[in-house]
Simulated assay, not measured.
Amino acid sequence: APMVLDVHHARVTKDENYDVERIKRTWKDRKPLAHISSGKDFIDDKSHSDYISEEDIKKYSWLFQDFDVEVEAKKKEKALERIADNKFLLIKIN
């Protein structure tokens, strides 16, 4: 079964030693899926923030190259706009 890389879930559970290549292989010939989110009140808060923090955009910008990324944020559309406008991303988000 295809595995989804959820970087916030990994951070909250203190299990950030995920095997990216193994996750990619579970998707066979399809682009893998990842979730990105930030903690609401602190970095490993289980609740999702309204937006993705700039720190997380910088840290996980590589996801947008290798994965289809779902933004898990309370203000999804505005969060996506902020990500697309962020100077740390090297790609254009469609």
Rank of each mutant, 00 (worst) to 15 (best):
K28A: 10
N86D: 15
D45T: 08
A73C: 12
K31R: 15
A73D: 09
K78G: 09
H35K: 12
M3F: 14
K75G: 08
D19A: 11
K28F: 10
T26C: 14
E55W: 05
T26N: 13
T13A: 04
D44E: 02
R30Y: 04
I43L: 15
D56N: 03
D66S: 11
L33N: 13
K58N: 13
T26D: 12
A10H: 03
V4K: 07
S37Y: 10
D85C: 02
K24C: 10
S49E: 11
V4W: 04
A84I: 02
A1R: 08
A84P: 04
Y60N: 12
D6G: 14
V7T: 06
D19K: 11
V71H: 14
A34V: 09
K24G: 08
E70P: 00
V4A: 09
S53V: 07
S38E: 09
A84V: 04
F88V: 11
I43M: 14
K76P: 13
R25K: 15
P2D: 12
D41N: 11
D44F: 04
H48W: 06
V7P: 01
V7H: 01
L80I: 15
E21M: 12
S49F: 11
S37W: 02
S49D: 15
V12I: 01
A84K: 03
A1S: 04
Y51I: 15
N17K: 08
H8M: 12
D15W: 00
V12C: 00
Y18G: 00
I23M: 03
E54M: 05
A73V: 04
L80R: 05
A34H: 10
M3S: 13
S47K: 12
K75A: 04
K24L: 10
K40F: 02
D50E: 14
D15I: 00
F64D: 04
G39A: 09
V71E: 13
P2R: 08
A10K: 02
L33K: 11
Q65L: 13
I23P: 05
D44M: 03
V20I: 15
W27M: 06
D29C: 11
L89R: 05
S53H: 03
K76T: 14
S49Y: 14
A34W: 04
E55T: 09
P2V: 10
Y18I: 02
E77L: 13
N86V: 01
G39D: 09
R25P: 07
K28Y: 08
L89H: 08
D45Y: 00
N86R: 03
D41Y: 07
D15E: 02
L80F: 10
K59R: 13
R30C: 02
D68G: 07
D45C: 09
I57G: 01
Y18E: 01
L80K: 09
T26M: 12
V69K: 01
D56R: 02
V7S: 02
N86S: 15
N17V: 01
D45E: 00
Y51R: 15
D45H: 02
G39V: 05
D19C: 07
K75Y: 07
H48Q: 07
S49T: 12
H9W: 06
